[in-house]
Computed example of a mutant assay.
Amino acid sequence: MMELFHNNSMFYQWFLLPMFIFLARICDVSMDTLRIMLLSRNKKFIAPLIGFFQVLIWLFAFRQIIMNLSNPLCYIGFAGGFATGTYVGMIIEEKLAIGFQILRIITRKKASRLIEYLQNKGYGVTRVEGEGLSGKVDIIYIIVRRSEISWLVDMVKQYNPNAFYTIEDVSSISESGVHLIKKEISEHDLLDKVPAKCDDPA
């Protein structure tokens, strides 16, 4: 049985070694995705730490490639791990939802009812009057945690299914503006709905 795990055995050379390289690449590439995400969100201490372990894992995988240049399965494991690690990193980053985003809403409806509702929920809301191709519009800006953005978009769609909105990442926030950001969503908020009646017809 132990002969299967010997580095000269066929099982090790053509299965275990490529699999180790594949898994190592998944780890280091997904960590690299997280590192870049943390850098873009100004996480100065966590990102370098992740980068340290990421490079160690990469060196292990690359060393195995150099030592086994005649094994094509190692190449496949190396490339396949890179592709899979990119996908895994995106999934992890999406689940962690670290950082903040700005939601920009453009609606032809008067937005005072929506603004009042969001402010009552603890959100800091900025409203600007504008004019678009079809006439006057209200432009609303809200900075929220990424974990809350889906819930907030659902609230906007309840208010006005035809509202136009965009979402952008926020790299940093001034200390004077932190108090304007809602602390967290409660279970009551998740079950709540925007009042059905709007100020003006669409």
Rank of each mutant, 00 (worst) to 15 (best):
V125N: 04
I65A: 11
K197L: 09
G177I: 04
S30M: 05
L49A: 12
M37I: 06
G122K: 01
I50Y: 05
K43E: 12
M2L: 11
E184V: 10
I50P: 00
R127E: 13
T84G: 06
I185R: 09
K110S: 10
F20P: 04
G89D: 01
K110M: 10
E131L: 05
V153E: 02
L103D: 00
I140L: 08
V137F: 02
C74F: 07
H6F: 12
D28E: 07
S9T: 02
P48Q: 13
L17V: 08
A47K: 04
A61Y: 01
I105C: 02
I105Q: 00
L118G: 04
Y75W: 11
Q119L: 10
V178W: 02
N68G: 07
V125M: 08
I46L: 15
V55P: 05
V29P: 02
E116S: 12
L180P: 01
H6D: 13
M1N: 09
I66C: 10
D138M: 00
I98V: 13
L191H: 15
I140E: 00
N7E: 15
R146A: 09
Q13T: 08
Y165F: 14
D192G: 04
I142Q: 00
I21C: 04
A79W: 07
L38H: 03
D200T: 15
F11W: 12
Y12P: 08
K43S: 11
S150N: 11
Q64Y: 09
I142P: 00
M67N: 12
K110V: 12
F22E: 01
K157S: 13
I139M: 13
E187N: 08
P195K: 13
A97R: 14
